[in-house]
């Protein structure tokens, strides 16, 4: 901005940044626009209309979508909740557990679900459930989602905990607070924003998952991504674009929420 002699300025970088954002947003914006298309065909523009949004809720496929949305949301809420509890405990164990043997092995195990490619996790989980004769369905999806949600919940929680001085808990314990009250009344309020972002991240990751769910959902159980994938196989229909736009708006609302929670969390308690 100051001049071209500014050593921080490289010509062309601004143009590339604009190109980057254009690439990231162009497909999403195009689908958003076409979701309001009145025409039956996806190629020609037939004027503005909300008919495909009505179709998502009342059309011939609406029952399927509603059930899938219910499955997706209930699995995501349960998986993210369980994963957040497990991850919070693990973060306290890792970061407030002192030095111990196998700390790096423990960290490797917690991050294993991020390191193993999704398709490999999907194959391994399918083989495991079929080998032990576990019925594929909502429960198998839930278990698999809890597993891969743990590291995503763990990372923001652990990052938050790392920034909190141990003196708060030490003070509480000096005043004869047991471990549970120390956690419940001292540590948890300070960790709050980290726990909430961990939950939200796990929630989105669960909602987002297609590959693993597709492998282990069994017959008849659909989540939103698998239902959309099934529909898209026969070509992109306008109602899918409306449904996609709704999901898009939902995701953006969640990110905005987590952004503001994160902002509120950046208080003087954090030491850097």
């Amino acid at each position: 901005m100051r001049s071209r002699f500014d050593i921080r300025h490289y010509s062309g970088f601004f143009a590339i940044t604009c190109a980057c954002l254009f690439i990231l947003y162009a497909p999403l914006i195009v689908v958003m626009i076409y979701s309001f298309n009145d025409s039956l065909s996806i190629t020609t523009w037939g004027g503005f209309s909300l008919r495909w949004y009505a179709d998502v809720f009342t059309g011939p496929e609406s029952e399927k979508f509603k059930l899938a949305a219910w499955n997706s949301l209930s699995i995501a809420v349960m998986a993210a909740s369980v994963a957040t509890v497990i991850a919070t405990a693990a973060a306290i164990g890792m970061i407030r557990g002192g030095k111990f043997k196998g700390k790096s092995a423990s960290f490797a195990l917690i991050s294993l679900p991020i390191m193993v490619p999704e398709i490999v996790t999907a194959v391994a989980t399918l083989i495991f459930f079929s080998a032990i004769g576990f019925q594929l369905g909502t429960l198998s999806i839930l278990v698999a989602h809890i597993v891969f949600c743990i590291p995503f919940a763990y990372l923001p929680i652990a990052a938050r905990l790392q920034g909190i001085e141990a003196s708060y808990e030490e003070a509480a314990q000096d005043l004869y607070a047991g471990r549970w009250p120390t956690f419940r009344y001292v540590l948890m309020p300070i960790m709050g924003p980290g726990i909430v972002s961990g939950f939200l991240l796990a929630f989105i990751i669960s909602l987002d998952d297609f590959i693993i769910t597709n492998f282990i959902k069994g017959a008849g159980v659909e989540t939103l991504p698998t239902a959309i994938f099934g529909s898209v196989k026969q070509g992109i229909k306008p109602n899918i674009m409306a449904l996609s736009t709704l999901m898009l708006v939902f995701s953006i609302a969640l990110v905005t929420l987590s952004y503001f929670i994160g902002k509120r969390g950046a208080d003087p308690d954090t030491t850097a």
Partner: peptide, 13 residues
């Protein structure tokens, strides 16, 4: 944060 499936379908569109 946007669903990868939706992003890929959008790209296809």
């Amino acid at each position: 944060w946007v669903n990868l499936l939706i992003r890929t379908v959008s790209m296809k569109f």
